[in-house]
Design a protein around this nucleic acid. Structure first.
Lengths: 234, 234
DNA sequence: TATTACAGACAGACCGTCGGTCTGTCGTCA
DNA sequence: TGACGACAGACCGACGGTCTGTCTGTAATA
């Protein structure tokens, strides 16, 4: 194999890209270092020049994904325009949009989300996400408390719980994706839609808001999501 | 190594016991089949006579743990005495008690709960638990709806969300355990107590009950838990 | 400008250990 | 006594990771 020296940062990013694709497609455990080498065209020596271990790559990917997603919502929290409820709704809308955008990329992951190989990967991304996004959400809730709109004893705890609910969405979506193509698909979609609608209601109530204050999902969200996932499947 | 033939069921259980201890102590990935063999005194041939793979052992353990925990709360749901709220509180009390009882066993797990090896193990146990216990809780909530006490559009979705909250408890507890022995220990404990208290409140509100209807934790629960974990540590 | 020296960027053979297989043996019960 | 379940343990391929060596861009020196 010929040597093709590259800009270190590019190489590192390239390796991360390759690894991320493979991890999402087949899971962390099922992906071998040799797979990554094959895909990137690099040698083992090269790989271990950039990363201390396969686990190290995972950590880098988790950090990168989390950073990117926090960057997507950061501006909403930075600029303080409007009351807390408006901003919270904007925050949730952006999160939703983010989910839709990354859905195609995550599609192979969803179809096997129940396989054990993916759960660790997935849980870690969520964990990192919560660590980074949680404080932002907490500040937002704190504002709502100070405005006297949110009836909540502890902003941090509330943020954690709400984020936990958000994370559980993936599980629910995964179950619906799993049912796709089967006779139960329609029922599964409806169950998911009910579930998501309930999550919005749950957030309302947890924050002590009147039912329906939070717009968690738009009607037909599930249908749109499923179509998006199906289109990219074939 | 001499042969010591045993009753098949005993052997299987013994293998599961050994594996479970090791998985809890060091995590699933870090535990090798050889470790299990060493601890049980069995040979490889013997091991693979009972289980198809290491993964197979995990599944069996997950199923066993989940079955045992469902058995602990099943009676409360079977016999229908009292209104839904009373029964729900009994259900939660039993769950709490169950957590306290298994805490010492889980102690080594908590201290390294953030290590990646444990997350898959942990997530899977939770998943199995939710699958088994979820429907029970849903029936309970359904009763509350029919009584007109719970204001909830979908019992199943509500049950799922509440269980999700319960599962996230371990993460929160893990964080507090992690801080134990450091200067932040006290603050971490207080944060955990607030967090757990909030979870009870969240359940109240999600179900449309007046604040304080659900007794999720007794005061000093966290202190007691931490003492329990510390005692078994040394 | 030509030469040299050096450090970082790789290549790839190699190693120990892992999960899992396979063949054979022992004990038990029909 | 033979057949079958319950093991024993040598063995295998593949994996993550190491090690030594080589190539190349760059900067200092003359």
């Amino acid at each position: 194999m010929p040597r093709t020296p590259q800009n270190p940062e590019r190489r590192r990013d390239q390796l991360l890209d390759c690894a991320q694709t493979l991890f999402f497609e087949q899971g962390y455990e099922a992906t071998t270092v040799n797979h990554i080498l094959q895909r990137s065209g690099l040698s083992k020596g090269g790989f271990y020049h950039y990363f201390a271990s396969k686990e190290d790559v995972l950590e880098a990917i988790v950090a990168r994904v989390a950073e990117r997603s926090v960057a997507q919502v950061n501006d909403l929290v930075e600029q303080d325009n409007g009351d807390a409820l408006t901003r919270l709704n904007a925050f949730l809308r952006r999160s939703r949009q983010l989910k839709l955008e990354t859905a195609p990329q995550l599609r192979p992951l969803f179809s096997v989300i129940f396989s054990p190989g993916h759960q660790s990967l997935f849980h870690r991304i969520n964990q990192a996400n919560m660590t980074l996004v949680g404080p932002l959400l907490a500040r937002l809730i704190q504002q709502g408390i100070e405005e006297g709109r949110f009836q909540v004893p502890d902003a941090t705890a509330a943020a954690e719980i709400i984020m936990q609910l958000g994370a559980s969405t993936y599980d629910a979506v995964g179950r619906a994706v799993y049912a796709q193509g089967t006779p139960e698909a329609k029922a599964a979609n409806q169950a998911l839609e009910r579930r998501l609608q309930f999550q919005g209601l749950a957030i309302d109530r947890i924050l002590g808001l009147p039912d329906g204050s939070i717009r968690y999902i738009d009607p037909g969200f599930v249908e749109a999501l499923m179509r998006l996932l199906d289109d990219t499947a074939e």
